[in-house]
Design a protein around this nucleic acid. Structure first.
Lengths: 338, 338
DNA sequence: GTGGATTGGGAAAACGTTTTACTGCAATAC
DNA sequence: GTATTGCAGTAAAACGTTTTCCCAATCCAC
């Protein structure tokens, strides 16, 4: 591998000149520039970015720390992050934690050793004592999707309560009175907020909350399946179900299909999280759509503002509103968006 | 940010000693070691990995260059790659090319500048003159999913012809005689191989190929939709369709649903690529499943063998066999796997 | 023609590690 | 008692850039 030193020797100039010409298109006389460029081409020289990073104190890399890129939500986020990174001529490193605090801690350790200039993180646990210790001045980071209440860092999140509220009020508006809920994990803010949205919507419309219509599905497909079966078994007078995430929606749909329940005639369904295939299910799914890709780009933009030192000194929190996408599983027909 | 120099000063030893103690748990006397560790803790020292990379000539990073992580196929591959990278204490950098040769070229340029120790790539174009120029001795790479015939690098691919062959023979075995094909892009090896599998299966069973039953869908959802509509319109006697990838399958399903065609009674469907939701469609989809995650881990293992200098000097090519997953859309009922 | 600004070019320091070669010193082997 | 080995510890080189400071030459304005 040839170095800048080789190029300088080949062209008969100093390494300083080579460096300057490579970085500043206006530097140097046409003749020397030509000689240098010829040498670069002849030797097949490529700048060593590691050396450059060392002197610049910047790596040109950010990290994205998420539970699992296979979750379509995070897949889209990842793509958003990479696209804005590209815009700023940055690279992105992918870190899956599997919701495991130890894995997350290991990755944060790696990041602290100056391997990236900053990171975007969807925390595995809301209480991370280790994360609390990273100095945001030296290694900026921004929360995405989930926040740590005790750490005042920038954040891009979605209003989960509002999403659930929209879904449930929509069902109420369609005449449903006994609406089941397949809830997520109660130990996550996301799960609690979506539960709260459900409760608030019911109360605001003067409906009483029936605890027997609420089931925990743990955010997993199997959990959603079991919860739906249970609702079917004991939920008397049930005419609709709101499911708190995409995995559980799949499980719920499976249970309804097995029980030969027709959607939406017998039971209407609204899910949280849109996906590529939701539109093509029979019937097409009515869902709450989160602006996933946009969340990624916004988080990226905030991070790059920090890296450039521009932007306000105070903490920035962006709360995005999810959107109700009306298709057919709610029984509203194709009346467009609400 | 404190450096090893600060630690050495604080502990009253040389920087060489600090370095050795940090890297070799057996080095040094217990007393000095204690002093050094105390200094590390007191100063909150973290090793600067950039500096380390420079002297070691290794970055501890590999890159994954793929068209788009949002394609579930590549999502799973990415996860496989990261998991094995972790095993070798490596990090992975994500590079989406959007099938754009220019983007791919830019990323390769970045990689050539010693930012990663090697990479795994699903090429945007089979003929990449630029890729041909990267020296595999200096910067090892392995192909995944797609190969460049002109570049003799390691590769992990799937036997696409075999997959299509299995799908189509399965339909023939079920009694279908007029089987439609929604083909992929002919300018990709993948697309051509799947077409070949379709043709071979037909011929091997003594059926004649009817060109009017073959449509191009360009590997996109819209393309699959249009292709299916066209087949429905002019494909006389059509009783089954084989669709060459997941996106086109979604489009095909939409077209069939709109035309009120019952699956599998009126038309049986087999798709290429399994997914999380294929099982939960009504009817559940019969598909050809590719070992996506495994492809990622295998490609990773090969790459790390190269990086370690172990493994055979000759080119390594792994060809995985896809698997037929029989559900209900083919009309075979739940008879298990073939 | 002189003073001041601009420009091409170079020497050397700096970035923060690891590694090599070396010095003592203590323990071991004969 | 001497030669040998092994270990703790150090100084300094090396990794490949960018950047600062400097010199010399050219250009321009007056």
């Amino acid at each position: 591998m040839s170095t800048i030193r080789d190029v300088a020797a080949e062209a008969g100039v100093s390494i300083a000149s080579v460096s300057k010409m490579l970085n500043d298109p206006n530097y140097g006389s046409p003749e020397t520039r030509a000689r240098v460029m010829a040498a670069v081409k002849k030797l097949g020289y490529h700048r060593n970015n590691i050396a450059r990073s060392m002197v610049k104190g910047k790596t040109g890399m950010i990290a994205l720390v998420i539970p699992d890129v296979r979750n379509p939500f995070f897949t889209a986020v990842a793509r958003g992050v990479e696209d804005v990174a590209n815009k700023y001529d940055y690279r992105v490193m992918l870190c899956n934690t599997d919701e495991d605090p130890t894995k997350q801690r290991n990755y944060i350790d790696v990041l602290r050793s100056k391997i990236a200039d900053g990171f975007i993180i969807a925390v595995a646990s809301e209480e991370d004592r280790y994360l609390k210790r990273v100095d945001r001045e030296k290694l900026p980071f921004v929360f995405i999707d989930r926040e740590c209440p005790s750490i005042p860092a920038d954040a891009v999140v979605v209003d989960n309560r509002d999403g659930a509220y929209k879904a449930v009020s929509h069902l109420i508006r369609l005449g449903h009175r006994r609406i089941g809920l397949i809830a997520g994990k109660r130990d996550t803010l996301t799960g609690r907020d979506r539960l709260r949205g459900y409760l608030d919507a019911l109360r605001d419309d003067g409906l009483t909350v029936d605890e027997t219509l609420i089931r925990d599905g743990g955010f997993t497909t199997e959990g959603g399946y079991e919860a739906a079966r249970s609702l079917l078994a004991v939920g008397r007078g049930l005419t609709a179900i709101f499911v708190s995430n995409n995995a559980m929606t799949i499980g719920c749909l499976k249970a309804l299909a097995e029980a030969r329940v027709r959607i939406p005639d017998q039971i209407a369904v609204v899910g949280f999280d849109d996906s590529e295939w939701a539109e093509f299910f029979t019937p097409p799914l009515t869902v709450i759509r989160q602006p996933t890709y946009t969340m990624g780009t916004l988080a990226g933009e905030i991070l790059f503002q920090r890296l450039e030192g521009s932007g306000p000194p105070e903490r920035k929190e962006i709360v995005l509103k999810p959107e109700l996408v009306v298709r057919e599983s709610c029984g509203a027909g194709q009346r467009g968006k609400a």
